[in-house]
Design a protein around this nucleic acid. Structure first.
Lengths: 327, 327
DNA sequence: GGCTATAATGTAATCGATTACACAGCAATC
DNA sequence: GATTGCTGTGTAATCGATTACATTATAGCC
């Protein structure tokens, strides 16, 4: 027979209410009683049934991350799995758990969210890959469920988020290139509808004003091929390249190598590969593990205290070989 | 007020038992009643509360993957996130969900398993990174919870698993190298306690007998640095390299390049980077997405029908530049 | 001493489903 | 016509906790 709260109560000669209190608000129980109950709990290795708890307390202690199929590339991007790992680990320190899932191509973007909410399976969500006008944010706000976004946009300013200083990152990249006397920068940005792309372009605009260079922006989709393609079709028109992901920077570097051209190139993210690649890639470092942990903490706070938190984490330019060539 | 089964029952003028039957075993309900109830369920957008269901039926429809901190490298290995994605997606097709988590360094290997089981949070586990003598398998078997391992060993032969034909993969690699007239192969295997390493060495042993070459085995830990280190300290002693992961093969290739040595090199896994790297890496391809999906299916079958399933998926040698050099 | 506030505990309702069991109605069987 | 079996449905127990409310004991105060 599985031990449950009633059995503990019986053996300890107290009521189930008291056992429950010992577990959930020990300060409400007298020292003596508490000790007695705790001893028996330990002896019998009793652990409360989470389903029963959730049912009654209306808290499941589950958080979901739903990766849109449209962001499938995330799964082969090391940035992402490290983020997920840190979110999960930090959540578990608060006794929360992470459900990780994807949607199917034919489904509505918000469908999985709806199901999780309607089934009462989760207490909140971490929203990745934020768009400028994000359907999921509208939906979650309407449904009133706690959530935190990784990234921020101009539209949804009253919600919890954790972001890195993408604006500054792009600014630093532009500054560094201008110091190399570059005057015409090819900016391979991410997808135009992603909020992260907006911030990065803003940073580059600022830098171009402050340091007096021109740039032209093209939109890639973060993976290597798009960086390569954009570079190939713009050869000869620019004297430097700034890409919004390391993979796109690497794509660019490969094309340059093939064509025997030598230009300063800067990437974004600082994935492990960037230091391994030859030439090693100058890039904007983001503290991705801290982003994950902070997202978890913000969400837990939002759930337990209804508190909206906004965090912007610093970035830094990591100078390696790819930007230190003469144009 | 949230709609629950009682409200549906009231409006449809039937009992809650009937509503429950319409949802869970519609064939037991008369056509007419069923139609009536279904209509109201749809109208009110009723979705059963999963916690209540789980509590009563003792099925949570949750599966967990617990990545040991000792296998931390998995998180930056693209192989892994694709595996997780496919497991999760396939599970969701059976209305199961995936909890992804890691343990903390100071914890016992089985601690998180214990907690999930004791809290009654999950119906089963997917065990990754299988060891030759795997504590987790002992533990789960003792506790009687359904699980499937990715990989197999000689000890635990009566459990569900999905594996790739690592033995054959290594055999094919050895064969290919011997066809290039290699006679002394440096085999950079994975960690010795991992079952996958055993199978790969077996395959190479077979090949060395069949095709008459020598080899010496060293154990790396799957990441690039270990491949590089082992290569460096064995320069000049071998005329070919076979590494048990693409990352280690790449590490080896970098050292060879630095030293100006040219040897055939073969990797394992076929991660995206392998075709991108220069030289592109000849490698043993594993159908990782199918491994993930099959693991999910096997586990669901094990849970619902108590059926033990063992699947071995095929591998193939993908010949690229790294093996096509003259020694 | 009587009154009130506070601390400690117990009783029982409750969360929202599933399901064992009972029973009614009807057809088939002898 | 009685018996058996099957279909369809309802009643109520149950899963295992949390928690509103009631109750008792004790201390503090006038």
């Amino acid at each position: 027979m599985e031990t449950n709260i009633a059995e503990i109560a019986r053996i300890a000669r107290v009521s189930t209410a008291t056992v429950s209190r010992v577990i959930n608000s020990p300060e409400k129980v007298a020292q003596e009683t508490r000790g007695k109950v705790e001893k028996i709990i330990k002896q019998l290795n009793y652990v409360p049934n989470q389903q029963a708890r959730s049912l009654r307390s209306r808290r499941t202690r589950m958080i979901a991350i739903i990766v849109p199929h449209s962001a499938d590339y995330l799964f082969s991007y090391p940035y992402f799995s490290i983020l997920v790992k840190e979110v999960s680990l930090e959540l578990s320190r608060f006794d929360y758990h992470l459900i990780l899932t994807t949607d199917e191509p034919q489904e509505a973007v918000t469908e999985r969210y709806r199901v999780f909410i309607d089934k009462k399976m989760v207490d909140g969500f971490v929203v990745l890959d934020l768009k400028n006008d994000d359907e999921r944010v509208h939906f979650l706000r309407e449904r009133g469920l706690p959530f935190v976004t990784v990234g921020r946009n101009d539209r949804d300013t009253d919600i919890s988020f954790v972001d890195t200083d993408n604006d500054l990152g792009a600014y630093l990249a532009g500054k560094h290139l201008s110091e190399k006397s570059c005057k015409r920068i090819l900016f391979i940005n991410g997808l135009a509808d992603q909020s992260v792309s907006v911030w990065r372009e803003r940073g580059l605009v600022r830098a171009s004003r402050d340091f007096g260079f021109d740039y032209e922006v093209f939109n890639g989709d973060f993976i290597e091929e798009s960086g390569a393609a954009i570079t190939r079709s713009n050869l000869g028109k620019f004297d430097a390249i700034f890409a919004a992901s390391d993979l796109m920077a690497i794509g660019a570097l490969k094309v340059l190598k093939e064509e025997g051209v030598s230009l300063p190139v800067i990437g974004f993210d600082d994935i492990p590969l960037s230091s391994e690649f030859s030439p090693s890639v100058t890039t904007v470092h983001q503290p991705i593990d801290e982003v994950g942990r902070e997202a978890a903490r913000i969400l837990v706070r939002q759930i337990s205290q209804g508190q909206v938190t906004k965090t912007i984490l610093p970035v830094s330019l990591v100078i390696r070989e790819s930007s230190e060539v003469s144009a």
